[in-house]
Write a protein that binds this DNA or RNA. Structure first.
Lengths: 199, 199
DNA sequence: TGTTTTCCAAGTCAGTTGTATGGCAATAAG
DNA sequence: CTTATTGCCATACAACTGACTTGGAAAACA
């Protein structure tokens, strides 16, 4: 065998270079040459790790989702154990918002994928595969809130979960457009949770 | 003077051809040649009406916003006069959702513009210029609800307005992704308004 | 009828795109 | 040493892009 190289590590580095380009110029504005240059490698080398553009796109999307999931997991780990359902929901939702540069980049790229998925059958599957899990997770928290008497039993957990996801997503949009401020977005979500959790 | 042609009418027709392409393949996938072919004219003719691609894009975006606004206006006209604030909000929000084919196309194109605006300074201004007006309109309705005793006075109209806009936007996203159904989206919005308007 | 203005088709051009190809360098196995 | 394998690279290519130029057709006025 010749020189040993960590393939996955290389692929991750290339994917992250793609994010930086896509964040600045959009997914369609990220040519393979640009990505290679951003990653500091040649076009040939990039092609050695991704045999086609689509392969790179799909890999980068999955890697992105993985990182976001890990960010949320780490944040939840930092909570005082055991955290209340309300804390879990607030922290998760806050972590999903584009409040720091890394998250902003992630959201920007995610949206670029979302738009492409609207016109691309195959990508659509990848793009929406994480939603049901997130929704179920949120619904579980609402159920736990009901069980603890913090949420009115008349609330429908699954509906509240979808509401919260959509709300977070919408606020993300307007945060990125700079139509509303981070403090405002956090305040709105906190207010929404405040009314969901009636003591 | 030579042959008289309605310039604006032509430009609108070309803009609508752009929408059809953008809806199917994304804004970046809509080349001038494709748009010309879709509009049934030659590339030269298209360039006679739009001297650059950007000019076409901006015109098409403004025309799109105008049409959406008129759709809402017409729908509100159809309400029994005088409509309650709750009715106004529900109907407006419902009209904004991608529930029929025309609205779906509009939303798809709007999102394509939104994504482009994230990376394009000039487009950003055009993209977010309608938001403050919509927000003020929603806030006025909430204020009217408070005045009529249908909304708790502790609610902050401006915050409720932003919440409603973000929620509608988020639901639009998941409707387009086919993660949730039209009935579900309408039900969620109705439930949200139900809790805002306490009899 | 001639003139002028508007409109439009076709072609060209420089630039960029994703992909394919052929080959070089380094390393490990035989 | 030989040889095969792997990592890597420069180049080439066909297709497509937006912008531009040229030339002429069509229609309203004089």
């Amino acid at each position: 065998m010749p020189k040993r190289v960590d393939h996955e590590e290389r692929r991750r580095a290339i994917a992250e270079a793609l994010w930086r380009i896509a964040c600045a110029r959009g997914l369609d504005g990220a040519s393979l040459r640009d990505v290679a240059a951003e990653a500091g490698i040649s076009l040939g080398q990039l092609q050695h790790y991704f045999s086609s553009r689509d392969e790179l796109l799909v890999f980068a999307l999955k890697h992105l989702g993985g990182l976001a999931e890990e960010r949320i997991r780490r944040r939840l780990m930092g909570l005082s154990a055991p955290p209340s359902p309300r804390d879990v929901l607030r922290e998760t939702v806050t972590e999903m918002l584009p409040l720091d540069e890394e998250s902003r980049t992630g959201n920007l790229v995610q949206i670029a994928y979302f738009v492409r998925a609207l016109h691309d059958e195959r990508l659509r599957g990848h793009a929406k595969e994480g939603v049901p899990a997130l929704r179920a997770f949120f619904a579980d928290q609402v159920r736990a809130g009901i069980a603890r008497g913090e949420v009115e039993p008349t609330r429908v957990p699954d509906a509240e979960a979808m509401l919260l996801i959509a709300l977070t997503d919408g606020l993300t949009t307007y945060l990125l457009l700079e139509v509303c401020t981070p403090e405002e977005a956090k305040g709105l979500l906190e207010g929404h949770l405040e009314r969901l959790f009636t003591p």
